[in-house]
Design a protein around this nucleic acid. Structure first.
Lengths: 219, 219
DNA sequence: TATTAGACTTTGATTAATCAAAGTATATTT
DNA sequence: AAATATACTTTGATTAATCAAAGTCTAATA
């Protein structure tokens, strides 16, 4: 059985490598993420390597093995499903769920997790908009997100437009809403059902949710 | 902050003292409940005493202090609320919830617990029929009679089942021995150590004293 | 190229929780 | 009262996770 500590190391190494887009993570980063001294991180890497979870190169960094990656993904899944549950079902506040999930993710069994996933309707993203890995360790590709799923301040690229009607496509092209275009979400207002965007660093545009939903994006 | 281990010791000492109806619990019982060697239990008592959770008399037994009792009650509350959630909300099976709750009870925060209690409608009893302590540490009082205390001809209702093992719970459910069920004591035979019951006006069932003792009833 | 700052590793110590096995007290039986 | 069995305590060792501080490497700067 894996200790919570080991689970945390593997989760954070995965998280960092996704974030930074490189499979090898520097020891300084590891120590920082886990809030331990560098020495602690180093000695933990040796023990993780001995158990086959990571590949460690002294003074270079650490990489997950495929089994380590599997564990990390599973932890990410646990964390994000739990965050979803805490907000959707129990009505906790956005800001307070991270630390709660951080504890619960080590205690919940595979079986309960599965039931929870089912109960929540197999959500694809958590309340922060982060993708929830599937049971088999796959991250839903970013192309499944629409503009509607973005939070304020996010800068994204258009992947596709999900409306075949000529009228809509004309509108889209006129406003530079074409695949590949970079877009900034300036402000979102749920009550007004309105979303303010900046296209090409200047053009300002307001979209309602029905339209925002049709703009599929990648990060 | 309390470690899961300490929480478990305090919970089990409380549980035993409720069960046995005496505040002082023998070390053998403590070691057995926690599945540790006697030596481990002894040394833990010394450290619990140093921290003010218990009063320990060598070769006599151990008693909770009032602060220790408070912690124990809170753990019982967590455990039983979680069991209720697992059955009521997630639809887990009766027999499998104990071990799940055993893990989760250490990870859930006071805040999430409160939200959960609210979400469940502040239940007074868990799926086994055991009373759930209130936020302030009060147990809704329950009858202490078991099936073993009944005389021939008596008709009673099951209050709770006093065995958390999945094997026993499976047996109980298969035979309709669940909280709320009406039962008639048809015949008792002390020498045979056997008790004949009628469940649902038809099913006939024979139980020995060890099992009859586990079925707590109300009139 | 030599120096130095910063990043990393090593070493030695600590704490919590545990066990095995040896020792001791208490209760029960003869 | 002596012998024995049972229950408990002590002792010494182990494991996981951690830190502080000393040591070492690497890369940038002078």
């Amino acid at each position: 059985m894996l200790s919570p500590t080991v689970e945390n190391y593997l989760k954070q190494i995965l998280n960092e490598s996704i974030q930074a887009g490189s499979s090898e993570v520097a020891m300084g980063k590891v120590a920082e993420c886990l809030q331990v001294t560098p020495g602690t991180a180093t000695s933990m890497m040796k023990s993780l390597e001995k158990k086959g979870w990571v590949k460690y190169r002294p003074r270079k960094g650490v990489k997950l093995t495929s089994s380590g990656r599997k564990v990390g993904m599973n932890m990410l899944r646990r964390h994000r499903l739990l965050e979803t549950f805490l907000v959707e079902t129990l009505g906790l506040d956005w800001g307070e769920i991270h630390d709660e999930a951080e504890e619960l993710e080590h205690a919940i069994s595979e079986k309960v997790l599965e039931k929870l996933d089912q109960f929540l309707g197999r959500p694809s993203h958590d309340p922060h908009g982060d993708p929830i890995p599937t049971k088999h360790g796959n991250l839903p590709s970013a192309s499944k997100r629409s503009l509607l799923d973005c939070r304020e301040g996010e800068i994204v690229r258009i992947e596709s437009i999900q409306d075949q009607g000529s009228e809509f496509l004309y509108f889209a092209r006129k406003n530079k809403l074409v695949p590949g275009k970079k877009i900034e979400v300036v402000r979102t207002d749920k009550i007004a059902d309105s979303m303010e965007l900046k296209v090409e660093q200047k053009t300002v545009l307001n979209l309602g949710s029905k339209t925002a939903e049709k703009i599929v994006i990648r990060d």
